[in-house]
């Protein structure tokens, strides 16, 4: 139980939010920021976005596409999609375990 809580915290990281944002297709940076802010109600600054994007690109989870009017779209790679699915499954399992322990069966 205690081993999973830090992993849960990791799900709040900007990189996960970016991966989720890119899961329905390529987006440029500003569109990712708007998507994340619209979905979470939390602001995402450009500094945070590019710090996370650079790391995701370095790890091969996202890849840049040719720029359009100075805006460069990014898309999930196959490895990124697999990584995202794995993280979301882990989160889902953790949530279901928590609900069971609360005596509230998952929907």
């Amino acid at each position: 139980m205690e081993r999973k809580i830090p992993e849960f915290g990791r799900f709040a990281e900007p990189s996960l939010l970016i991966l989720v944002s890119l899961s329905d297709g390529p987006k440029h940076g500003y569109a990712i920021m708007q998507d994340v802010e619209g979905g979470t109600g939390r602001p995402m600054g450009a500094g945070t976005l590019y710090a996370a994007l650079a790391r995701l690109e370095e790890q091969g989870l996202v890849e840049p596409l040719p720029p359009v009017d100075r805006r460069r779209p990014y898309r999930l790679t196959a490895v990124g999609a697999s990584n995202l699915a794995e993280q979301l499954r882990g989160l889902s399992e953790f949530a279901q375990m928590g609900l069971r322990q609360l005596g509230k069966p998952p929907p």
Binding site: R10, E13, P43, G47, T48, A51, Q59
Partner: peptide, 12 residues
């Protein structure tokens, strides 16, 4: 620490 994607960031 690139694995965690943790960087410096301002937040709510």
């Amino acid at each position: 620490d690139i694995q965690q994607g943790r960087g410096f960031s301002m937040s709510l």
